[in-house]
């Protein structure tokens, strides 16, 4: 399956260059695959079609201009959401209908195991008392990111999480959840302490100095967490795709060699298969990390100082 997938990607890349007939412009090809766009291509070997997405007029909210036109990443994000609703809606129905007093089997069992693992090992363990209110958010976060990651590995697919606009928005949601948790749980004074913190037992003068030094650090610390969340996911997704595409691109860079090109093509395909397998692992890992770190941040905020 995965080798097929890699080959598909290879062929997809190949058609691009074959259509051009010119020396390969690998950077352009790479950027085309990685970046967002307002068209989705379904082409193999020059055949197929391209879907042009509609462009809507931007909406103006005060000074802000919002262009809500659907893009490639928007579409794949919506596909991911639809898949999630479909799959987990069905799992939920089946669980309610059949497995209330009977052990689940098959797919429902697998999903139940994952859901339970997340609730018990991630949410409850990291957040502690009152964690169950966050279960829905953390579970949705994990599976949403996971499906978006995996959609990039499907033929013709695209990774919405390889876009800073998406990871940034998800990270900001994390940030807001963490900070609002802090405000609600710790109260105004307690929350203020997470920014303006003076270690106990210091003289007033030293306290003032510490306050001046530590406040920017604490403040930056708050902002760094969501920033790293966004960059980590984005960079991992982009890096994986860049690696795979670069390896495939090597085939087209060495077409001038008579015998070497076959060796290079073979080696590339083997490497691509290996890295695509790695990519599947990374897709799971990064979704897991995003969800787990968010839980950890929530837990840290709830038990701050």
């Amino acid at each position: 399956m995965t080798s097929l997938l890699a080959l598909f990607q290879g062929q997809e890349g190949a058609t691009h260059e074959a259509a051009q007939g010119a020396p390969p412009d690998l950077e352009r090809m790479l950027m085309h695959h990685l970046t967002d766009g307002n068209e989705i291509e379904f082409e193999i070997l020059g055949r197929g079609f391209t879907v042009h997405l509609p462009e809507w007029d931007p909406i103006h909210i005060g000074q802000l201009t919002l262009d809500l036109s659907p893009t490639k990443h928007t579409v794949f994000m919506l596909i991911a959401a639809a898949l999630l609703v479909l799959v987990f809606g069905m799992v939920g129905r089946v669980m309610q209908r059949k497995y209330r007093d009977k052990a689940p089997s098959g797919f429902a069992n697998a999903m139940e195991a994952m859901v339970l693992y997340f609730r018990d090992e991630i949410v409850r363990r990291n957040i502690g008392q009152g964690a169950d209110g966050y279960t829905s958010y953390i579970l949705t976060l994990f599976f949403f990111v996971l499906v978006m990651n995996l959609l990039g590995l499907v033929p013709f697919g695209s990774t919405a999480t390889g876009n800073l606009s998406v990871t940034g928005a998800l990270a900001i949601v994390s940030f807001v959840v963490v900070e609002v948790t802090g405000m609600v749980k710790l109260g105004a004074a307690g929350y203020a302490k997470t920014i303006f913190y003076v270690p106990p037992g210091l003289s007033p003068a030293m306290g003032a100095v510490m306050l001046m030094i530590m406040t920017p650090v604490e403040f930056l610390g708050k902002l760094t967490k969501p920033f790293t969340l966004a960059i980590r996911l984005f960079a991992n997704m982009v890096a994986g795709h860049t690696l795979v595409l670069s390896l495939l691109g090597m085939i087209f860079m060495f077409t001038s060699l008579t015998f070497g090109k076959w060796a290079i093509a073979g080696a590339s395909v083997v490497m691509v298969v290996a890295f695509t397998l790695l990519e599947i692992f990374v897709a799971f890992l990064q979704a897991y990390i995003f969800a787990m770190l968010t839980s950890v941040f929530i837990g840290m905020m709830r038990h701050a100082h």
């Binding site: 950027m31 990685l34 970046t35 967002d36 931007p58 802000l64 201009t65 919002l66 262009d67 809500l68 036109s69 659907p70 893009t71 990443h73 928007t74 994000m77 919506l78 959401a81 949705t140 976060l141 949403f144 919405a160 876009n163 800073l164 606009s165 998406v166 940034g168 928005a169 998800l170 949601v173 982009v238």
Partner: peptide, 16 residues
């Protein structure tokens, strides 16, 4: 690669 598309961010927030 580092472009921020606010529309997409909004979509993300809405969908999420």
């Amino acid at each position: 690669l580092f472009n921020i598309n606010l529309g997409l961010s909004t979509w993300t927030l809405l969908v999420f």
